[in-house]
């Protein structure tokens, strides 16, 4: 079995972003960038399937400019066999991501395609489902367990109010939940080794995909802040204030 795992380069989970003064976009210049956390779960699970002898090859793919090589090197350092960069300077929206990934899937013919369930920058959560639609294959979103049985993948999905178990025919697209696993730490020698590995680069224009934006961002702004509250010194004062100021009697 061959696994294709898609990874996105995003502003690190721990960094708070701010809006540019002219409201045109988010100011991410100079911020620490990392692999999208959910994608890291996807890479980890691919590697575990390989270590169990189920997967033969794990191929990581990222879309974007040359800076994206760092998340691909991270995937290689974690243990991915190969890495592909689909190079473009365009700002890619989910549908364009799905179309480019479809083109990569057609070149690589993987049995299983893994993506994070959402990227923590755009918070759209669409690329995996869109890719499954374009490939006309089954999908499993928000998965927290993955097991291969014959020509099906059995997944547990984290849904509102509980979990659901599905059997999906291969090839299938899965999107991963944080609950799926704890990604491994990358050891320094592995990172050094990953630096020497070749990253295959394909120009997005060579894939014959029209990746034009389908929506324009008119402006971005800081969210309205909640009015600053008050400190109380005791449980009794809290109850008193809730009763006096809010009319709430607990």
């Amino acid at each position: 079995m061959k696994i294709l795992v898609a990874v996105k380069r995003v502003v690190d989970y721990n960094i708070k972003v701010y809006v540019k003064p002219d409201g045109s976009n988010v100011d991410i210049e100079g911020l620490k960038m990392s692999m999208n956390p959910f994608d890291e779960n996807a890479v980890e699970e691919s590697l575990r399937l390989k270590e169990k002898g189920i997967a033969r090859e794990v191929v990581a793919v990222s879309l974007g400019n040359t800076l994206n090589q760092d998340v691909l090197r991270h995937a290689l350092a974690m243990g991915a066999d190969r890495a592909i960069l689909v190079e473009t300077d365009a700002e890619l929206q989910p549908l364009a991501v799905a179309k480019l990934l479809k083109a990569v899937v057609e070149r690589e013919n993987p049995d299983l395609i893994l993506l994070g369930k959402q990227a923590i920058d755009s918070d759209a959560g669409q690329a995996g489902q869109m890719l499954a639609a374009l490939l006309n294959c089954g999908q499993g979103t928000y998965v927290s367990t993955i097991n291969i049985e014959n020509d099906e993948v059995i997944v547990t999905r984290e849904v509102d109010g509980g979990t659901e178990t599905l059997a999906i025919s291969l090839p299938a697209v899965l999107t991963t939940d944080l609950r799926l696993n704890e990604p491994r730490f990358v050891k320094l020698p592995n990172l050094m080794m990953a630096r020497k590995k070749q990253i295959e680069t394909i120009a997005a224009t060579d894939l014959g995909v029209v990746a034009e934006p389908r929506f324009n961002v008119l402006n971005v702004s800081a969210p309205p802040t909640r009015k600053s509250g008050i400190r109380v010194n005791s449980v009794q004062e809290l109850l008193q204030k809730l009763s006096d100021l809010e009319g709430i009697t607990l």
């Binding site: 988010v26 929506f215 971005v220 702004s221 800081a222 969210p223």
Partner: peptide
């Protein structure tokens, strides 16, 4: 077609407000 996730406000026939970066930024898209 595109999809717009988790719209906070519908501002016109095709313009929407939504949050990005875990609610740290509000984005208006057309």
């Amino acid at each position: 077609v595109a999809m717009i996730t988790d719209v906070l406000q519908i501002n016109g026939s095709n313009t929407y407000t939504r949050s990005i970066y875990a609610g740290n930024v509000i984005s208006t898209v057309q």
